[in-house]
Amino acid sequence: MAGGQVEIGQAGGLSDVGETLGTDALKILSAIEEVWCEDGVLLLMDLGSAVMSAELALEMLPEQRRQKCLLSNAPLVEGAIVAALHASLGEPLQAVNAVAEAALSAPKLPGAG
């Protein structure tokens, strides 16, 4: 979606126990470091502990970097697609998050919602 202009990382599963379900704050932290960009990093999460683990990961970041990270309320799949495209258009982090979060209220079926 982003034409190779936007770095996208992923962090899923609990690495230490070989468990694929769950999230690991350290994995999230290293994913943030991996895709780091001075324009900021948008974090998209699915259900359950993903949010808490992401919050933990942010706490482990240096303050300067933490300020440029944003936890998004956007749905994971739709939000990732929308955010990737709008980030590639050069929009600022807050604007990218706003369009991604708008995907929450966008009906998929014509006439629904």
Binding site: E78, I81, V82, L85, V99, A106, P107
Partner: peptide
């Protein structure tokens, strides 16, 4: 017969 959407938004365009 949809209403007009913002063409600069992918999520709206898909609708």
């Amino acid at each position: 017969n949809t209403h007009a959407i913002d063409l600069k938004s992918i999520i709206q365009l898909m609708q």
